[in-house]
């Protein structure tokens, strides 16, 4: 068992060390005349997947297995949720998905069940089962989860708008997302650098600047205690004490309040330990709610 854990952790460490450069700027293919600007889809619509392959859509898919929380949320936000026929076990939003079949979890994918559901599109965010799925004759779209720039959420929204033929909804959702980001930027423009912040995912694991959360902390103009970490990493407690963050975001406040070594940290003394919500875990339309929540907690006066 040790060996397995060791292997898994090494994989995670390697994954954390790699800078993800593979995600390209846009997932729509070059040869398609930008269908998104005139709000009119020109099928066939073409999407470039994370392998760089072109996936062509002759019309909007009707039966989508959305093996991804973010994709599911986007489809529902576009009012195209009735095209989603199945998800995976950890997708819980919106409430409508709870009654849908689940075709797998973190480790398994039930290909038999997928085949039985007769989908016309399977969307998946990790490559393990791609070969099997393609061999089974399923139409597959594989896009890695976003892990750096949260503005790419709007690219995904627009892509799904193109695929479902609902570009107008996608456009207004994206513009809303972008406008709210701009609003935060404007409000912070004239402000000096904000407080220092420690964003704890669990047991001192934290987000470096090259992650989605790290990008949010950059946007909010705060000093990220994990600034020297690449990807996600477990920070040394003495670095935390020395950095003396003004605010801590965590799911386990007692980890910080219960340890005498942390008692002199500003965030602990001033009672500025906030419990993180799950909004920033999923790079979907609600991600902006998570950003605004963070902005409000960090700057209660600027963002009431």
């Amino acid at each position: 068992m040790k060996v397995v854990y060791l292997g898994l952790l090494i994989l995670l460490l390697i994954a954390a060390c790699q800078n993800n450069t593979s995600s390209n700027n846009t997932h729509t293919c070059q040869n398609i005349a930008s269908p998104l600007l005139n709000n009119e889809v020109i099928f066939p619509f073409c999407v470039e997947d994370s392998y760089g392959r072109k996936v062509i859509f002759d019309g909007p898919p009707e039966r989508i297995v959305a093996y991804d929380a973010a994709a599911t949320e986007i489809l529902f936000a576009l009012n195209e949720g009735d095209r989603v026929i199945a998800t995976h076990s950890f997708v819980s939003y919106p409430a409508d998905v709870q009654t849908l079949p689940k075709v797998g979890d973190a480790s398994t994918l039930d290909i038999e069940l997928i085949l039985e559901l007769e989908p016309d599109l399977v969307f998946i965010f990790f490559p393990t089962f791609n070969e099997q799925l393609t061999k089974s004759g399923l139409k597959l779209l594989y896009l890695e989860s976003l892990n750096d720039d949260f503005l790419k959420v709007t690219e995904h929204i627009r892509m799904w708008g193109g695929i479902t033929g609902n570009t107008s909804a996608a456009e207004s959702l994206s513009l809303n997302f972008e406008a709210r980001i701009e609003k935060i930027k404007d409000a912070l423009k004239s402000q000096p650098t904000g407080p220092s912040v420690f964003y704890d995912t669990s047991q001192l694991w934290t987000a470096g600047p090259d992650t989605l959360v790290g990008n949010v902390l950059d946007l909010l103009n705060v000093r990220n205690v994990g600034k020297k970490i690449s990807g996600y990493g477990q920070i040394s407690p003495e670095t935390l004490v020395e950095s003396n963050p003004d605010i801590i975001f965590t799911k386990e406040p007692a980890f910080f309040t219960g340890n005498p070594a942390f008692s002199k940290i500003n965030a602990v003394r001033n009672n500025r330990i906030y419990i993180t919500s799950d909004l920033l875990d999923i790079a979907g339309p609600r991600f902006i709610d998570g950003i605004e929540e963070l902005a409000h907690l960090i700057y209660p006066n600027l963002f009431p």
Binding site: Y5, L8, L9, A106, T201, Q203
Partner: peptide
């Protein structure tokens, strides 16, 4: 343990690092 890990939410790093041991919370 593996089953619980696989069937629970995908954030596995904390439990993996606990299983490999460490003194980060020494008091």
């Amino acid at each position: 343990t593996s089953l619980i890990m696989l069937k629970s939410n995908p954030e596995l790093r904390p439990i993996l690092s606990w299983l490999l041991g460490g003194f980060i919370n020494a008091q």
